[in-house]
């Protein structure tokens, strides 16, 4: 564990790949830096860290960090991560997925990874929209918000991914903010340390599409709005129109968008169980 105030995270960047392709003001880079600081703080051996991404703006970030990195297919980061972790349990496996990536096309994989309680730390970056493809509605777009495919406002309600994942069996569930990077770093540290499936929803911003379509300003304004609207666990929200996952301001007047660690339990972890079974089975019966 590294306790010095200053995290030497730049050592983990693939400098020849920088700068990354994300838009000006996109919050994802803040989250990536927090993740790198968390890895540094934990003192994880660089060779023993694997970072898996799906498809989308968030997943694209795995290409910029100098670990064993796997940029997979849309929605499928977690099955790849599951295979990796089961095959080599000593690896620290992180998955970075987006909201559409993780909750729409990859929703099934997400809940099953949670159910299995495999020791993977999953960061789901929620910017309430499909960014890479041009700003289409996501399962996290709040009702009535405008996107390229909901020009008159979204009709469907959105997911609260933390509640979903807790119900699915994730043994560590947390929500962090790109606008609170120090807290976020601490949450990621806890997520990695947790034995089992750790799920962190991180609220991020897409000024290019979500901000523009809904007149929420550029990066700084969206970041500041996060801070204004979201508070620590149990703080009520006055105006949740902006906050992804909280659409109906009238209906949620007494509901808090919580952030911090929302759920934690100790449950048997899958890769450990599998390898215990193997250890007990080797040499048994006819092969």
């Amino acid at each position: 564990m590294n306790t010095a105030a200053r995290a030497d995270y730049r050592r983990y960047l693939r400098l020849d790949m920088m700068p990354h392709i994300l838009c000006p003001g996109c919050g994802h880079g803040i989250v990536l830096q927090a993740m790198l600081r968390a890895i540094w703080r934990l003192g994880l051996p660089q060779d023993q860290v694997a970072v898996v991404g799906g498809i989308g703006c968030s997943s694209r970030m795995v290409g910029y960090v100098d670990f064993c990195t796997l940029h997979t297919t849309h929605g499928r980061a977690l099955p790849f991560a599951t295979g990796l972790k089961l095959a080599r349990p000593e690896l620290t496996v992180l998955a970075i997925v987006g909201d559409g990536d993780g909750l729409a096309i990859g929703g099934n994989h997400l809940i099953h990874a949670a159910r299995r309680n495999i020791d993977v730390t999953c960061l789901l970056l929620n910017n309430a929209i499909y960014g890479m493809t041009g700003g289409q509605v996501a399962p996290t777009t709040p009702t009535e918000m405008v996107s390229a495919t909901t020009p008159g406002g979204a009709l469907e309600p959105s997911f609260d991914s933390c509640k979903l994942l807790e119900a699915a069996g994730a043994s560590f569930v947390a929500r962090g903010l790109s606008s609170a990077p120090i807290d976020l770093e601490a949450l990621i540290v806890q997520g990695i340390q947790h034995q089992g499936f750790s799920f962190l929803e991180v609220l991020s911003d897409c000024p290019t599409y979500y901000g523009r379509y809904n007149r929420l300003g550029e990066g700084p304004e969206m970041l500041q709005a996060q801070r204004r609207h979201v508070d620590w666990v149990a703080a009520p929200l006055a105006d949740k129109a902006f906050v992804p996952g909280f659409a109906d301001t009238a209906a949620v007047a007494d509901v808090a968008l919580q952030y911090g660690v929302l759920h934690r339990e100790t449950r048997p972890e899958l890769s450990e169980q599998v390898h215990r079974l193997i250890a007990a089975s080797v040499g048994e019966g006819p092969t």
């Binding site: 064993c68 297919t73 099955p79 599951t82 089961l86 099934n108 099953h112």
Partner: peptide, 21 residues
């Protein structure tokens, strides 16, 4: 290691993840 996955997409994904390991 044996694992039954949630679908065939996940199955091949897990196999390739393990292969890389």
């Amino acid at each position: 290691v044996f694992i039954q996955m949630e679908d065939e997409m996940a199955s091949l994904a897990a196999v390739m993840g393990a292969s890389l390991a």
